[in-house]
Design a protein around this nucleic acid. Sequence first.
RNA 1: GGCGGAGUAGCCAAGUGGUAAGGCGCGGGUUUGCAAAACCUGUAUUCGCGAGUUCGAUUCUCGCCUCCGCCUCCA
Length: 466
Amino acid sequence: MQWLGRAVNAAPVRLFDTLKREVVPLEPVDGQSFRFYCCGPTVYGPAHIGNFRTFVMQDVLRRVLEVGGMRTKHVRNITDVDDKTIRDSVASGRTLSDFTSEWRDKYHEDCEALNCLQPHVEPSAVEHVPEQIAMISELVEKGHAYRSDDGSVYFKISSFPGYGELSRLDTRELDLGKTQNERANSDEYDKDNAADFVLWKARREEDGENFWESPWGQGRPGWHLECSAMIRKYLGETFDLHSGGEDLVFPHHENEIAQSKCSCGGEFARHWFHSAHLLVNGKKMSKSSGTLYTLADLAEEGWSAMEVRYVLIGSNYRKQLNFTKESLHAAREALGKLAKAATGHKAPGYRSLLKGGNPGVFAGALDKLNEDLNTAGALGEVFANLKSAKSGDDWRGFFMVLAALGLTLPEPAAVKVPDDISEIAAKRWEARQAKDWAASDIFRDELAAKGWVVKDGREGYEVVPL
RNA sequence: GGCGGAGUAGCCAAGUGGUAAGGCGCGGGUUUGCAAAACCUGUAUUCGCGAGUUCGAUUCUCGCCUCCGCCUCCA
C-alpha cells in the first residue's frame, strides 16, 4: 500500500455502496491509489447549487480519503456535446466549443470558490469522439449493438443479462407499453426494443455543423457512452468507484455498466456512490418557482460560496437536503464561531495535513467522517470539543477535520471603512468618553442610516457594515 | 401504477436495544449610560400514529398516516 501518513487511531474509510446496498470499506484495487470517476456537468448554462451538492460531496469523499492517508486518482468529465449543448449553441449562433467553453470556465470558477480540489484528469467528451467510436465498433462486432435504418446505433439490452442490477430493474416495472407508444408516435426512434438506448445518434438537420464521420455515417455519440469511453481511457476496465447524483442511477449508470462490461470486460466500477438531491423550501428546485439558485444568485444576496458549502455538507448525503436562506444564515454564524475559536491558530497547508498525525480531541470528528461521510456528525463533534482544544495536536486535528470537509474560515473582516464613516465613529467615541450620551446616540443613528454599526469594546470600538 | 427515501425541539440536524450530539433561533445572566457585540447559561421525560418482540425501543418487526424524489439524455 502506498500510504501517506495516517491519522493516529483513524478508522478505515467506509462508504455506503449503492450497488451492494451496504456500508463497505474502501481500499484501492491496485493497492496504489484510489481511482474514482465522477459524472461532471453538462456545460450549457451555469451550474446550480443542486449540481454542487453532488460535486461537493464527491470532493469531501476525496478529501476524507486523502486526509486518511490514501492516494487518489480523481477523474471528472465535462459533458460538452449532447442535445442541450448543441441545441443552445446553435440557437445562440455560436460554435459548440465557443459556447461550452464559456460555461466550463464559469463552472471552474464556481468549483474554486467552493474550495473543491481539481480532478487529476478532467476529460472533455468532445475531445474523445474517436475513443467513443472505437467502443461502439466493439459493441457492434460483439453483437451487443446494432445500426438502425437512419444510421443511429443502439445498445441491445437483451444481449446483456446483467442489465438492471444497479437500479434493481428486476424488481422495477418499466412501463414499456407507455414508452413504446410514445416512441412510436414521436417517430424519432427506430429500435428493436423500446428500452434499448442510443450509442450513436445519426446526424439531424437541427444539429448544424456538429457531427462526426463514423462507420455508420455522420452523427454524434450518445450521452451515456461518453463516460464509458473516457473511463476506459483514464481509469481502465476495473476501477474503484463511480459517482454522481442519484438521478443518474437509471438509466445513465445502468447503461454505462452495460456498455463497458460488454465492450471491454473487467469489473468496471467496484463501488457506486450516489448523493441525494437538494430541495429548496421543501420542493424540487425549478426555474419557474425561482428556486434554481446559482452561486452568482446567492452572491448577489451577500452569501459567500463557503457559506453555501457549509450548508451543502450540513446533512447526510444520502438524504434529501432542504436548502433555505435560514440555513445559510446558520452557516454564516457557525463559520464565524469556528473562526473566532481558531483565532491565533494558523491553518497548515492541505498537503502538509496529509502527513497524518494525532488529531487530539478531534479524533472523534474524523471517525465520523470515515464512517460513511457523516459530515453533520463530524461538525457536531467539532463544536462539542471546541472548548477543550488546547494542545498543538488538538489544533492540528481541528484543521484536519476542516480540510477533510473542505471548509476554510472567514478572515476577520478586512472591510475598508470609508473616511466619513470612521470620522463619525471617532466623534461618537469622543462623545462617549465625555459621557455625552445624547450626542453619542445621534452619531450611532447616523452611522446606522449609512449602513454601518459600531461594536464597542473595553479599549476601543470597531465599525462593521450592517 | 412501479421503485426508492424520509418523518427527532420554532428551524436545520446527528445518533443509539438502555433511556436524546451539534448548529441556528429563542429565554435568562454578566457586561453596557441604554443598546449592539462579546462571554456565561437555559432550552425534546421525548424521537409521525397504533400494535408486537424485549427486563427495556426513538432505535427491531408488522400495520397505518403524511411528505419527498425517481420512473422524461435533471447532479
